[in-house]
């Protein structure tokens, strides 16, 4: 047994991981989720807004991290739409606009057909310049976005009336996979007007430890990795329903089951690996 474990082929481990991830997906298991305070705060920040309030929705991620971030982006858009907020989409990553298009197609046009482009939501598109864009938006949004992603001058867009800088938005909702992302929004947008600008964010698991120091002073709430998305989804589902309708509004919750089995397998592998290590030490092999 010792020799078998010591010489365990990595393909066995790969196969175990494949099974651990595949089985819960195939069986469609969804474990229950209870929101942690940091996610609840993000939810409550949006809940506290009034109909017609403006939210700046920045999608700063790409398909590589969409597995973690797409569910929270969907949940953010749904929550803002349910609250009848005015949504201003932007992206600092070149492929970000594709996620804006997906949100428009899958959430807004499908479930909120009464929302009108230019009156209830607008796509300001991608801008290059990383934190330079944020810095300019913090002072003069119109200089950065003279027109929307469709080429319409922003003076011709009704919901752009009275919008001059980031201070004119009630909340920034950012979904970020790295640089430029949440950290830059804190450093250049929130820091420019700490009393006027609120930020809630969703980020990947590896980014989360870097962002915790900003909560709760500079960031009102944070959705960390797929668990954060699942917790937020559970809160949105609890408040606005559709919990019996499987689909994109439960993607985060659905992905918690493979995460659970994957994590248990990892713990098991680490435990067995250490068992092998101590046995090898006892035999004088390590």
């Amino acid at each position: 047994m010792y020799e078998f474990l010591r010489d365990l082929d990595r393909r066995v481990i790969f196969s175990l991981m494949a099974v651990a991830v595949a089985v819960p997906i195939l069986l469609q298991i969804t474990p229950p989720e209870k929101a942690t305070p940091i996610v609840r705060d993000a939810f409550e920040t949006i809940e506290a807004l009034e109909e017609g309030d403006k939210v700046y929705m920045a999608f700063d991620f790409d398909p590589a991290s969409a597995g973690e971030l797409q569910p929270m982006a969907t949940a953010f858009v749904r929550h803002a739409s349910e609250k009848k907020l005015k949504i201003y989409f932007t992206a600092l990553w070149p492929v970000g606009p594709q996620f804006i298009k997906n949100a428009e197609r899958d959430v807004i046009k499908r479930d909120f057909p009464n929302m009108v482009y230019g009156e209830d939501y607008v796509d300001l598109g991608f801008k290059t310049g990383n934190e330079g864009v944020i810095k300019l938006v913090a002072n003069d949004l119109r200089a950065q976005y003279p027109q929307d992603a469709r080429g319409t001058p922003i003076d011709d867009i009704p919901m752009m009336e009275g919008v001059g800088s980031i201070r004119d938005f009630e909340v920034i909702m950012n979904v970020s996979a790295g640089y430029p992302g949440t950290k830059e929004w804190v450093q250049y947008a929130v820091a420019s007007a700490p009393d006027d600008v609120k930020l809630v964010a969703g980020c990947t698991g590896v980014q989360a430890p870097l962002l915790y120091p900003y909560y709760p002073q500079q960031m009102s709430g944070l959705l960390a990795a797929i668990k954060g998305a699942a917790e937020y989804e559970s809160l949105v589902l609890g408040k606005y329903g559709r919990e019996n309708e499987p689909g994109m509004y439960q993607e985060g919750l659905r992905r918690m089951a493979p995460q659970l089995s994957g994590h248990i397998l990892m713990v098991g592998l680490i435990f067995v690996g250490n068992l092998v290590y101590f046995m090898a030490r006892k035999r004088g092999e390590a």
């Binding site: 481990i13 790969f14 175990l16 991830v21 990892m266 592998l269 680490i270 690996g273 290590y277």
Partner: peptide, 14 residues
């Protein structure tokens, strides 16, 4: 996920 699992088994030692 696969590489991390393999690495954890081989390298994460007390």
């Amino acid at each position: 996920a696969f590489y991390v699992a393999s690495a954890a088994f081989r390298a994460f030692r007390a």
